[in-house]
Structures are given as C-alpha cells and as structure tokens.
Design a protein around this nucleic acid. Structure first.
Lengths: 209, 209
DNA sequence: CCATTACGCTACGACTCGTAGCGAAACCGC
DNA sequence: GCGGTTTCGCTACGAGTCGTAGCGTAATGG
C-alpha cells in the first residue's frame, strides 16, 4: 500500500514506519475536518508532526495519499457467518454502510474516484488497493452458500466470474448511491429489502440458465 | 437551475442568458481537459469570454457551478418504449452508461458528490437538480409495465415509494460503480445480465409479498 | 569510518483564490 | 428622452497554496 517499496534493498536510513502511520491518520483526520478540496498537504504534514518535504518524498500528491488513507478503512470488512446467505449479505451491506457513514470514507473515496476518471494510474491503484482486495467477500460468501446448498455450483467459470463482478458492482454501487447520492441511511430495513431483491434475482438467474 | 431566480422582479440590466450558457459549456469543456481539481474559475471565465467577476456574481463557487453544468447532461435521458419492461430498463441503463462515458459527466458528478458529503446545502442542490429530476424514469417505467400487466399494481403506496427508491439506487449505483470504480464498460452484455437479475428480483419480491 | 538514504527546516517563484473599486452598458418606469 | 437600477468587463490586490531546491543533521549498512 506504500507508494513504492524499493526493489533494490536500500542501504541508508530506513523510512520511519511511525511517520507513515501518523501521516495516514492525519490525512483521515483532515478529511473529516476539512473535506477533500480544502485539505492541504502542508496541513497534513503539520498534523502528523513531520516536514512537508517528507510527505512529498513518499507520495506523488494528494490523490495517492488519500487512496492509501482510505484503503485502510475497508480492510475492516469481514464476512460474518450468520448461517444463511441472506443474513451474510445483509451483514456485509450493513458493515459497508457503517464505514461509509464515516466522513473520512465518504469524501475521500468519492474524491479519488472522481480524480481517477482522468488518471489511469490512479484508477489502477484504486483497483488493486480497494476493489480487488474486497472482492474476496463475494467469493467467500458464494463458497459458503454453495457449501450450504443455497446456491448451485457454477458450471461455466467465465460466467461465474462475470457474476461475481456483477454482484460486487450492484452491492457496492447501491450502498454508495443510497448513502451518498440519495443521502438516505442504509439501515437494517433497507438492507433487508435490498438483499431480498438481489437474492431472488440471483437465484432466478442461476435456475433459468 | 440558475443560482438564484430573483423573487422580486429586478428593474435593471438583465443577466445575459448567453453568458450563462457559455459559462456552463465552458465548465464542461474545462472538466474534460483539466478534471475537477485543476479546474479554476478564472480559466472557465476566460473560455466563456466573460469576466471572472461575472462568474462569482452568479455562482457561489466551484461546487455550485459544476452541479449546474452536470445536471444539464442528465436531462438527455428518455425512457424509450421498447415493448417490454426488460427492454425498457436495458435502454435506460445503456443511455445512462453513455452519459457516464463522457469525461465531463464522470469527473464532475463524482467530484460534487464528494464535496456534498460535507455540505448539506450542496446535497440538497444535487438532489433537486439531478436525483429527484431523474426518478421520473423509474415511475414512468413502472406505470408502463403495470399497463402491460408485467408488474402488479402496487397495494401499499408507502412500500411502492420505497421500491422506487431502491430501484433507483440499485440501477444508478450499479452503473456508476461498474464504469467508474471497477472501470469496466457497461455494454449491452452487461446491461442484459444486470437487467435480468434486477427484474427477477423485483418480480420475486412482489409475488411473495 | 564512510557511503547512502531519510529527515527537518527554510525559502522561493508561480499560481489561484475571492473581493473591491471603477466606468460603461442595458433595461425599467416615468 | 431621463434618472434609477442592475449587470458587465476590467484591473488590482492580499492571502493562501503549490511543489521544489538547498542545507545540515540523523540513522542505517559495509
């Protein structure tokens, strides 16, 4: 997740791990208080107790810094084993909603996505730091459901991969849109209704295949 | 959509309508070339051929200006009557994807959503300029499907309103997430698969009610 | 002990911000 | 026509941020 892990082992003074942690924490703190547009790297450096130049030596700019700061938040996600697929999905949806309720996640995530529309390298960074990383939840959930007999084992691996992508886009997209654009809470009632529609759709689609 | 429509009819020189159109067009052009973070109001004014002060007299800042510039893009959406609910939904999904393929829509929309996380007034402005405005598509689509007998007439009006909100969040959220976060094209294949899951889910949910 | 790298600090030109002040232009009611 | 009113274009301004360069110092490995 660091900006660059030197391939050739360096032989000088090592980079302070405390500094990196302090900078990322300070970035989230600044996102809460100031939001994306008013967040300045100079301010982050002051909060973290490091020199501004240190920050520029490690990150290319605001975009890369905030991606790293936000990516850490999503690592909190776990797939709780609640016994049924529906309950598992609801659990993840609610966890996701909880993270998105935090202001540093809201403004940070959307802002870097906006910047990424004009920056292929940043897009790739987001994909590997957040998207691909969290797709594990969908894979694990499906495996459990198949073990329980709630979902049939996939026949076509290509089709199965496409379904995973679809589910991820639908779940993440709906929660984000609900909380950030529609500005309504993604609470338990909403999660229940959403999960019901999604699950019925998936079961129906896999049956009529 | 203008920043303020004077309630008391003014009696001086009227604001130039051409200037407003030129400014919004210049804003979209600048979004394409520069993106959100590097877009400056001075540059927009120059492109539009107006003075910077004129711009500040009409809009409070970058946020409000871009909301208006982007909102115009979504007015292009129409609900094509393709004969079946599935085809209608696919049509809207593809139209939405087409708009989101334009760089000015991508970066502009996400950026203002990001800023809106810390600005209640801006959130409200987005809701009334974009969200509520486009929810008409869901309402019209449902009415047509009910006329065709594809969907049962709603019994509980409260439940029906909640379903409309859910559909809107799922459709818009999934398309946005697919194109902007996953960075994969929302093409016809994807639209077909998505529509199938959504429709099966909705029918199943309305039956077992 | 020496080479190497990271760090803190200061200073810098370039740029953007949002506002103020001015004279001219365009519209209203009389 | 003729004031009253509002907008417009233009210029100028202090304040703040950007990203970088330069320097001396601190921390590691050979």
């Amino acid at each position: 997740m660091q900006s660059r892990t030197p391939v050739t082992r360096a032989s000088g003074r090592p980079r302070s791990a405390e500094a990196a942690a302090a900078i990322l924490a300070a970035t989230r703190e600044a996102l809460v208080e100031l939001g994306w547009s008013k967040l300045t790297l100079g301010d982050v450096a002051t909060r973290a107790g490091v020199a501004k130049t240190t920050l520029y030596r490690r990150w290319a700019g605001k975009n890369e810094l905030v991606v790293d700061a936000v990516a850490e938040l999503f690592d909190e996600l776990v797939l709780p084993d609640r016994g049924t697929l529906a309950a598992d999905i609801e659990g993840v949806v609610l966890q996701f909603a909880t993270i998105l309720a935090r202001p540093e996640a809201r403004s940070g995530l959307m802002a870097v996505v906006a910047e990424a529309t004009r920056d292929e390298a940043l897009r790739e960074r987001i994909r590997e730091s957040i998207v691909t990383r969290q797709k594990r939840l969908v894979l694990e959930g499906r495996a459990r459901a198949q073990a329980r007999g709630e979902l049939p084992p996939e026949t076509d691996p290509l089709e199965a991969a496409r379904t995973v992508d679809l589910i991820f886009d639908v779940v993440a997209g709906a929660v984000v849109h609900r909380t950030l654009v529609s500005a309504e809470p993604a609470d338990e009632d909403w999660a229940r209704g959403f999960t019901r529609v999604l699950l019925l759709g998936l079961k129906g689609a896999s049956q009529s295949d």
